[in-house]
Amino acid sequence: MRLITHNMLQCHVRGCNANNFPLELQEVVLEQEEAEMNEDFLRNMLGKLEYDALVATCHKLDINDLPVTLPEDAQYNEEFLQILHRIILETHVKSGKMVCPNCNHTYSIRDGIPNMLLAEHEV
């Protein structure tokens, strides 16, 4: 799972509607995989990213390349887009778990595939 997708995830346990984002990554194993740079895509995604959550998540993973606040010229800042691309599209979470900050539900990740299945009482 790429970090961009992690940034889009929220807990979907029944009744867990507030403070259910971002899921906290724990005991993760990361892997870098090269991907083709697509600036248009990054520009489209800028509005959808929760930038603060992304920076916070990266800090926990010891990735400190991102500026703390989103640069104002982010759309056309080549250098920034490069860093963003490397972090959100080339960094994959291979294993570990994600914990909801609100209800503490744990989603485990194996082979890069998070298990999002819920127990019956959580639906």
């Binding site: 799972m1 995830l9 979907h12 999002m116 299945l117 819920l118 639906v123």
Partner: peptide
Amino acid sequence: FLQDAGQGIAFR
């Protein structure tokens, strides 16, 4: 993802 559509999807 391993997920059941009937349980809803977990995206913002």
